[in-house]
Amino acid sequence: MTVFRFVFLRSFRNTTNLIFLTLFPLVCIFMPQGDPWPVLPYGYQLFGVFLLFVSIRLASYIQVDRMSGVVKRLSIAPLSHASYLSQHLLAYLLIIMLQCVILVYGGVLYGQPLIQPFLLLILYISYSLAALAIALAWITLFRNKELAFFGFMSFVFLVSVLGGIIVPVSMFPEWLARIAVLFPTYWLAEGQLWIVYGNELGDFLFVNVVLWLYALVFMIIGSTRKLR
């Protein structure tokens, strides 16, 4: 579990990261609610976008390992690649979960109308899994740290718009609405819709399962071992 512990150590050393990570959820808590859309307060609606950014920032630790060559040392150490990745991902997940908890229960304390805060938390966690997996796959495909980051930003923008976070899917033409299903952000928006309006738990489970499948697919892509 050394890798796991040291991820925390490294991220806390970086003060900008720390500020970024704690401040944003707090800001999100206090953002107002739109009417009739989005169904949740703006902060909560946009949290999905934020989570994608956080994912790529966190995943950059693995990127730094690859670019600096530490992976070479680790590859000959008695540490399996699976163990290495899972320790990293677990650490990232914990960091993100913390933020989700702050966001959701902070919101509850503040009095935001979250309808079903616990299920919202579950949704956010499922989504975070997918986001982390996407970030992992992204850095596996794009080596250069800066290039990957800027590319990811464009990707996030695309995915947010087309997925229906910035603009509701109901306003899309038919074919665009169909395409929206490809994006994990769509499923987050769907989940959020369900939290406010839905009643069949099966539908909610369905949304989560889809998000987990996304996580699975992208994790498989991102699990390639790269030594350079």
Binding site: T2, V3, F6, L9, R13, S68, G69, V70, K72, R73
Partner: peptide
């Protein structure tokens, strides 16, 4: 393995670097 490039963490101190690799 002593690699050709310098493969240590720049943000950790020397001791912490060694602790990391020892822990691994």
């Amino acid at each position: 393995l002593v690699t050709q490039e310098i493969t240590v963490y720049d943000e950790l101190t020397a001791k912490e670097n060694l602790q990391f690799f020892a822990g691994v």
